[in-house]
Write a protein that binds this DNA or RNA. Structure first.
Lengths: 160, 160
DNA sequence: GCTCTGATGTTATATGGTGACATCTGTTAT
DNA sequence: ATAACAGATGTCACCATATAACATCAGAGC
């Protein structure tokens, strides 16, 4: 079975793609993708595992001579989340790059508890089931969050 | 339309019910619902809004002469979550009493961003849609989390 | 060049959560 | 009864996550 994000892949390509799309989207919207924001986005994309704000902070602090303040990172992350370029994984207090920026944003994730990889979904059945359950109770949906903790295919079969 | 948890209701009854069920469940399981744990459960049930660990901590510190340590609360919460008596709302870093302890635990919540009330669901369509989406990708579900941020019926119509 | 707006820097602090180890308390076996 | 044990709690120190308040800076439009 093909995996959404194989453990082995050309990740540099993922990063370049993400930055390119971010440039295009922000350009079209008139949003300012400043150097700090762009760099934070790049650091979020370090892997397909959600990264904590302080991990990104440490990276930033290492490259510049002077240490970066937490607020710098949080403000950049806030911008990136607003622009739909980054998602926040609530159950991990961490951030991951969006694979479909500018498009649908269901906020559905399969998070592997072994390797830490988070795969983003936009499953229409899930989306619709939640919408129906909520509106059936008179609840106005603003931001649905689905985070499924479990074991990804690659981590289920150690011998293969 | 009837609401799952009306703003006006006999909440003392909710608390008594929750404690009674907790006593019965722990008794049947041989789990020790000690005085601290029971008191924390009661404080979680202060309202139908998720409460932070430190809010509970403050309550505990006020009643006893000496301040309570965070660990005391976190250990009690850990026990209560393990026993299925309390749920953790990931998106709020807060805790809320389970309305169906001992039964199904889908971990689905409608969280009102105005009044803070969280209503627990166990919608079979949502549950099944998530299961299907995950297993269809070879993902082994361990703990699904659904937290829908939005506006509850009571908060949608200020004039009524 | 001036000015305004939005972005960033700085400092301090709030909030949420654990590790390590000592002590206590209730249960069980003798 | 009591020794011995396991699980629960206390204590202290600390790490991790996030934000408030205010000053300063940089770029866009006039």
């Amino acid at each position: 079975m093909p995996h959404a994000v194989p453990h082995q892949h050309d990740h540099a390509h993922c990063i370049i793609d993400a930055l390119t799309r971010a440039d295009a989207l922000c350009g079209a919207r008139g949003a300012r993708l400043t150097s700090v924001r762009r760099r934070v986005l790049e650091l979020v994309w370090t892997s397909h595992r959600p990264r904590g704000a302080y991990a990104i902070l440490d990276d930033l602090s290492q490259e510049g001579g002077k240490p970066t303040a937490p607020l710098t990172v949080y403000r950049a992350l806030e911008f990136l989340v607003e622009q739909g370029l980054v998602h926040r994984i609530e159950s991990l207090n961490a951030y991951i790059g969006c694979i479909t920026p500018g498009g649908a944003h269901a906020g559905q994730f399969l998070v592997c508890e072994r390797c830490g990889t988070a795969v983003e979904l936009d499953d229409p059945c899930v989306r619709e089931a939640i919408r129906a359950a909520a509106t059936g109770r008179g609840f106005l949906v603003h931001r649905p969050t689905v985070e499924v903790c479990g074991v990804c295919p690659d981590c289920q079969e150690p011998s293969l």
